[in-house]
Nucleic acid binder design. Structure first.
Lengths: 229, 229
DNA sequence: TTAGTATTCAAGAGAATTCTTGAATACTTT
DNA sequence: AAAGTATTCAAGAATTCTCTTGAATACTAA
């Protein structure tokens, strides 16, 4: 109301907020979040992303370009394909943060999540700390059931990779003497649950780690990638 | 494309992403981000928020309700007024994260920020660590130039409160023997710069701390609130 | 060059967002 | 109760978002 506002025009404070809002706007769509979620597990081509998220190619492409305009992802030509990937670890971090807020604030999340889980078996849960002590003591083996490309991109140290689709024919690689702790992309991913169910039916002792590689990393632990494993 | 997708319907994975997207959508607007930014400094009434962000009352109210529906803020009746505040520290954290991503990803931000700063003087910058050693050695005094309500809500330990508007008539409270380090709401806030400019003209040795209370807290340091000071 | 691939572009219909305006609501104070 | 306050509601116009469709582009392989 006073004149002092004009006297020293705070430049374009509004522009700054507009800029920040662009980031949020780029993430303000379920499909784009799913794409980010997938990309957080590893780079992918447009076709792969479209298939995994049940979008038409053209639609996936458009969403990806929106993410790209907001600099949340980067694209790179590789022969026939264009491969998209997360532009910066900060972006993954931001996505985890959104999930964290949602999980805590919206009680609906736990409801939806429960509904989401109700159809499935519930398995013993293992915390990150728990897992570490078990691994040290040698009372557990860690199993990564994500597609092998994601395992290659990054995984928990000492994790064995058996993608869910290969699990049936690779059961012999797992011990009955120890608990098999399965993990996948994170708390909202079903791959590990499906794996655990299979293993339980086959008589294995199983548990599920809620966390995925990013949550693990955020807890301050290091990751391994293809070469080292 | 395969039938296996239907066989084990991943429940409503889409619902989860929709839920997460709501959080992002609530933040996907410059005005709402400004409101959040203000609220991050302390609770306020609708009228105050409208005034400080140059929105009509009705418009501010609508934006606030959108934030409320997403559970990012909470409202509370207090006599005549309805006071809004951040629902949870996680929300502030998320807001800082968006800013961080924006600052790093969008080169435009630094451009805009530079333009934003160009009209003003640039002052010696002090890092959080730097500040701590200076305060320990007693070679600096710390000055909070935000409105007193925000200071009361929370401030850096040992900070003296002189709101920008009162600065001119309270200069005698500041020492010439030490550097005056001014801070306000954070890196994009101009209050501290304006204060520093005034002080410099009056012959004080000044510096500016980029960080605000939230950045300080996120760096792992504790804050003080009205009572203790 | 030609054929073939993955991806993007362009246009348009339907839905959601945003701001404004004027009235309605929910309180407090007298 | 009556008057006055801060806030919200409701409706409508302008804008933006989203998905679909079919064509265009930018590469690779032969």
């Amino acid at each position: 109301m006073t004149i002092s506002e004009k006297k020293q025009p705070p430049a374009n404070k509004q522009d700054l907020y507009r800029l920040f809002a662009r980031i949020a706007a780029a993430m303000a769509n379920p499909h784009r979040l799913e794409l980010l979620d997938l990309l957080a597990q590893g780079a992918r081509t447009v076709e792969e992303l479209a298939r995994e998220s049940n979008l038409s190619i053209a639609n996936a492409s458009q969403h990806l370009q929106r993410l790209k305009r907001a600099r949340l992802v980067i694209d790179e030509r590789q022969g026939f394909y264009i491969r998209y990937r997360i532009a910066d670890p900060l972006v993954t971090h931001l996505w985890l943060e959104i999930r964290a807020v949602a999980s805590q604030q919206l009680t609906e999340v736990s409801v939806t999540l429960d509904a989401y889980r109700a159809q499935r078996h519930e398995f013993k849960r293992v915390s990150v700390e728990d897992l570490r002590t078990r691994l040290e003591k040698g009372t557990a083996v860690l199993l990564d059931v994500r597609p092998s490309a994601e395992y290659a991109a990054s995984h928990l140290p000492s994790a064995l990779s058996i993608p869910l689709e290969e699990l049936d024919r690779r059961l012999s690689e797992l011990p009955h003497s120890r608990t098999v702790v399965a993990y996948c992309r994170g708390p909202y991913c079903v791959l590990a649950d499906q794996a655990a169910e299979k293993l339980q039916r086959k008589g294995f002792r199983v548990a599920r780690l809620e966390e995925g590689v990013h949550e693990w990393q955020q807890a301050g632990y290091s990751l391994a990638s293809a070469r080292e494993a």
